[in-house]
Design a protein around this nucleic acid. Structure first.
Length: 263
DNA sequence: AATATTGTTCAGCA
DNA sequence: GTGCTGAACAATAT
């Protein structure tokens, strides 16, 4: 589930737990999660260094070290970082385990192994190789930029919002909320959208991302007016009371209100 | 027991 | 190149 707002929360978590401590040990418990490196390379590169900063781009988290290396984490659908000290606090699915000299551990916990860990030295090069668009929050920060991105885009609006090569960070859950707040049907072709509607989507993109960041990792903190609190088939729309519908859009499940969100 | 879920990547087709 | 679909990946809940 980790989309941009969760990533920002992960960054804050790393900032407050794992920076400026010497890495004593690096254990790869599941080599399949490594993408451009191997266990031995990762170990020899990281041991003895410290993490000095964390940065987010879309759904990727970059951990910068005191050397030129950066550890890149992608959390797939079920990943999260877990910082702990005692063995009994170890999460259930640690795939990479970093131990600091203070005795604490940082685990890359990932139940379904769809997460990825890379070791890189050039962040911009990585972003280019992965063909990632600008970060939806930090880099798509004016409505003009947003309109320009979408001006040459075709296809359905939900699919476009989730297209990481167009703009990075929005997944299935956030795109549902952005379109619900905008009262726009997820299958609306981008071509058909009026400028006013695209502006509305831009505004809601920012407000949804920020609201989710402030709500933290538990959905309880979200406003009741959000569809995310009612994201199941047949649930009541928080705006009009109609039943929420589920349809397939580009192979993904989209939840929407057929009364509020018309094409 | 079959199905849905979640994000990315890749193959095949128009 | 672009858009669309479906499959694959893994493990869990229903």
């Amino acid at each position: 589930m980790p989309e941009l707002p969760e990533l920002v929360n992960f960054k804050q978590y790393i900032d407050s737990t794992s920076l400026h401590q010497k890495i004593a040990q690096v254990e790869v418990l599941e080599p399949d999660i490594l993408s451009n490196t191997d266990s031995e390379k990762l170990r020899s590169a990281l041991e003895g260094l410290e993490f000095k900063a964390a940065a987010v781009h879309g759904k990727y988290l970059f951990l910068q070290t005191t050397d030129s290396y950066q550890l890149v984490l992608h959390f797939g659908m079920t990943g999260r970082p877990v910082y702990y000290k005692k063995e009994e606090q170890q999460p259930d699915y640690p795939r990479l385990l970093i131990t600091f000299t203070n005795g604490y551990h940082l685990a890359f916990d990932c139940m379904r192994m769809l997460g990825k860990v890379s070791l890189i030295s050039d962040q911009n090069k990585f972003i280019e190789e992965k063909n990632l668009g600008p970060d939806a929050l930090k880099e798509v920060s004016s409505v003009e930029k947003f309109l320009e991105l979408f001006s040459s885009k075709r296809g359905m609006i939900k699919t476009a919002l989730m297209d990481q090569s167009l703009l990075a960070g929005i997944g299935n859950v956030c795109s549902d909320e952005i379109l619900f707040q905008s009262r726009i049907h997820p299958k609306t072709p981008v071509n058909d959208l009026k400028k006013e509607q695209l502006k509305k989507i831009y505004d809601n993109m920012h407000s949804v991302l920020k609201t989710k960041i402030e709500a933290g990792l538990s959905p309880d903190g979200l406003p009741n007016s959000y569809i995310l609190k009612h994201r199941s088939e047949g649930a009541q729309c928080p705006s009009c009371g109609s039943k929420i519908k589920k349809i397939k859009v580009g192979g993904r499940s989209a939840y929407y209100c057929p009364n509020c969100q018309k094409k």
